[in-house]
Amino acid sequence: MTKHTIVALVEDRPGVLNRIASKWRQRGFNIESLAVGHSEMAGLSRMTFTVDGTTTDVDQVTKQMYKLIEVVKVTDLTEHDMVHRELALVKVAANPQQRSAIIEIVDIFRAKIVDVAPESLIIEVTGTEDKIDAIFEMLRPYGIKELVRTGRIAMTRGAAAPTSVDGGKGEHHRYRPAGEGKPKVGSLL
């Protein structure tokens, strides 16, 4: 397995993303995708990123990230039984004659059409990277106008929550469950 899926829990504070990116660049880590958003705890964001294990020492990625004060927890999910997904929006050229063929593809992939215009459609598709690659290839002949992908997000199967603080019990006073009071600062940038 060369592609590693790593989940990091980080404090929502200005500059944190900058610090993390700076660390990756400084140490020459080859990060392939990155997705960040709020977590279940106010004041904490969860980021999922993937690293190519053939070019990057994954152990060092974890250790170097822990050196950053705002990084609370880093978990390599690669060996875990996990669910991982990516979301993509595809704007594809579609005149009225082509639409039904495209809708057929959308149905096969269990994707959704979220915008219709006279000469185009926006398709929302969720799945593994392979699935998105596949629908992309199927749609390509119609003319792809734009593609945007979120990068992988991932979670382990089962009740355990290894990427959370204290396994998800949220015992620490500094972090509150989301919704109980608003986070002090809500931006990583």
């Binding site: 200005p14 500059g15 900058n18 004060i69």
Partner: peptide, 14 residues
Amino acid sequence: ITGITIPITKQNYL
């Protein structure tokens, strides 16, 4: 200066 010193500080604050 906080941006400049990110790689050479253990932590910095604005």
